[in-house]
């Protein structure tokens, strides 16, 4: 019995180790582990940080990257009031629906209208081809799920954003590429997006590269997992309930089986 459990545990560890080591050849440098307010069973969002992260996204990243699963109405979840959210939405120009005459363009230009809460956050480009054309053939990926779509998650995203460096001697850089040791292959088409004081934070926080990287990564944790707080809170209640119930079931089991022995 004990032998079984030890074998099973050893094997399970082996497999999970193996499964997580898929990034063999060409994998980037292992990103350093950081602490995030969302980690652990009691993880929470820091809404002040999320608002700063939104500011970094909308002022820096949104030039090339979409977050196409997020609606303006979602912004009330990170601490904006209803009025502030509507203001943010209205500041964006969204392609208007066809008017009564069926027109979508006027004088060759797309007719626009102010954004509404039920609109998705405005994308920088109307389609992938336009995105590539504006970025030397490279397609800036959508960022909504980036934290879940990469091994290393938030640690990786932060390391990438804050980890640009000069290429070591001997490394030949391709045209238009930047060196980043955390990116698989170490060369990527995105130049370092964050610069000291690149953003003037609304809450007055000093906008160092590390601060902005942390804030925008925390924001991307939220875009990827907006249900995180609810999920963990519910999880605690469910698990506590189950532990109590299972304890009771065990006691009943022992009672019922007692008269057999």
């Amino acid at each position: 019995m004990k032998k079984t459990l030890i074998t099973a545990l050893a094997a399970a560890l082996l497999v999970s180790f193996g499964v997580s080591n898929v990034m063999a050849a060409g994998a980037g440098k292992e990103p350093p582990k950081r602490t995030w307010t969302t980690q652990g069973p009691f993880g929470k969002f820091d809404r002040a940080q999320l608002k700063r992260g939104w500011q970094v996204y909308s002022e820096v990243c949104a030039a090339c990257h979409s977050i196409n699963q997020i609606y303006y109405r979602n912004l009330v979840e990170i601490g904006f009031s209803d009025a502030e959210m509507k203001e943010i939405a209205a500041a964006a120009e969204i392609p208007a629906e066809p008017n009564e005459d069926g027109e979508t363009h006027k004088d060759g230009e797309r007719i626009m209208r102010p954004g509404k809460p039920f609109d998705k956050v405005k994308t920088p480009f109307p389609n992938d081809n336009a995105a590539r054309a504006a970025n030397g053939g490279a397609l800036p990926p959508d960022l909504t799920l980036m934290v879940k779509a990469r091994h290393g998650g938030a640690d990786y995203v932060h390391a990438l954003l804050a980890g640009y460096s000069n290429a070591p001697s001997g490394v030949e850089m391709q045209d238009g590429m930047s060196y980043n040791e955390y990116f698989p292959g170490a060369q990527l088409a995105m130049a370092a997006p964050l610069a000291e004081d690149g953003v003037e934070y609304a809450d007055g926080t000093k906008a160092t590269v590390s601060q902005m990287a942390e804030d925008v990564t925390a924001f991307l944790i939220w875009t990827a997992e907006p249900e995180l707080e609810d999920r963990k809170r519910m999880g605690i209640k469910v698990l506590l309930f189950l532990i109590v119930l299972t304890g009771m079931l065990y006691a009943v089991k022992r009672k019922i089986w007692a008269d057999l022995h």
Partner: peptide
């Protein structure tokens, strides 16, 4: 288990 581990590797 070994087969499982190998299956995840190139």
């Amino acid at each position: 288990f070994v087969l499982g581990y190998v299956g995840a590797q190139p």
